[in-house]
Design a binder for these strands. Structure first.
Lengths: 198, 198
DNA sequence: CTGGTCTGACTGACCGGTCAGTCTAGATAT
DNA sequence: ATATCTAGACTGACCGGTCAGTCAGACCAG
């Protein structure tokens, strides 16, 4: 399966480049050079530049979604589960900054439009929301959470991840999870919740 | 000042196109046609395609920042002020969906890199955070808010706006503001805060 | 008439995509 | 064991379409 390795390597290199520059600024030649292959080889793995690009992006989101599903799988108390899910997302992105930028860029564009590939993108993207939403709903069912609009607030949670990562503040994954979940669950209205001091 | 009008019209048309397609998919000819000008005219207003693009983006963020500053200017009780600020952002984007996509795309890319134009972008972008952060700090100073990391949480708030807008749920601006501010201030941990019933 | 603005046909660099040719690894024959 | 063949992956020089950017002339307004 040497060919598979090569393909994967191309994806990794392409990801790096696409994350760093605009689509049209990344030349097929650049990708080829970066991956130590000839330009022609790219075309024996991917139909064209667009296909390569989508393969990159798609590969990234599939990885992320796997982590996510895994984290949401084992059932624990709602809050703990929520932390686990957020932890999964943040861990993945911390280890793959490249994908973070790439996915951010991609779904900034992800409007209503629908070129076949966008369709798949949309559905993978939606799955993340579904997972988060189901965690919230479980919390509501158990009486632990008060979440009037689970779907919407699932979007909010996912958005918070992006915010924290783009903030530039250098925090550990745990710290990020804490900021997000604490803010989300306990709010910023005075009266610290329970965690503050002894 | 006919020339100014024309220039503005070009910006508006270009914004629409750039929001709908990738940079390299938008042709100067398309922009010219959309704006009912000849291609050459574009070059008497903007040095090149990149300059035009950045002018579009920059124009958008300047408008937004003006609204934002205005909203944060008059001082009111912290919570009310926070609502006003969020309202300003959401109102602007609701009226200018185009800019929402455009700005989202642009700052997805906005990594550490620094091509002169990006520098300016970065600083305008930062100003939004500064405004939100100062609102939070005022709330903390007055003892109304409990916000351990004002800057970070300012990012979170801005991110929530994006989340809600991308969610696809069709809500009025007021409803969006409420979801965001309520979540941010009161949290999702059971025990509804104060607003629920009688 | 004249200074300025606009126009759109034109040009040439550039880059996505191709393909004839090379190389390698394995299979088969001797 | 070694020679020969073959499949198919890889290579990179090349091609040709595409567009950003130009500029000679049309078209005004004063």
């Amino acid at each position: 399966m040497k060919s598979q390795e090569r393909r994967d390597n191309i994806l990794v290199c392409a990801a790096r480049l696409f994350a760093a520059a605009r689509f049209d600024e990344v030349l097929m030649e650049d990708i080829a050079r970066e991956a130590s292959v000839a330009k022609g080889t790219l075309y024996s793995h991917f139909a064209d530049k667009d296909a390569l690009y989508f393969a990159v992006v798609f590969d990234g989101i599939l990885q992320l979604n796997n982590h996510l599903r895994a984290a949401a799988a084992q059932d624990r108390p709602p809050e703990e589960q929520l932390r686990a899910v957020m932890n999964a997302i943040l861990t993945f992105f911390s280890r793959n900054r490249v994908f973070f930028r790439l996915l951010s860029m991609e779904d900034a564009k992800a409007g209503p439009g629908g070129s076949e590939s966008r369709q798949r993108w949309q559905s993978e993207r939606t799955e993340q929301i579904d997972v988060i939403e189901s965690v919230l709903r479980r919390g509501v069912a158990g009486g632990d959470f008060h979440v009037p609009q689970p779907r919407l607030q699932a979007f909010v949670l996912r958005g918070m991840v992006r915010s924290v990562l783009t903030s530039g503040e250098k925090l550990s994954v745990k710290e990020m999870v804490d900021v997000i979940v604490d803010t989300f669950l306990y709010g910023a209205r005075s009266k610290a919740p329970e965690a503050p001091s002894p």
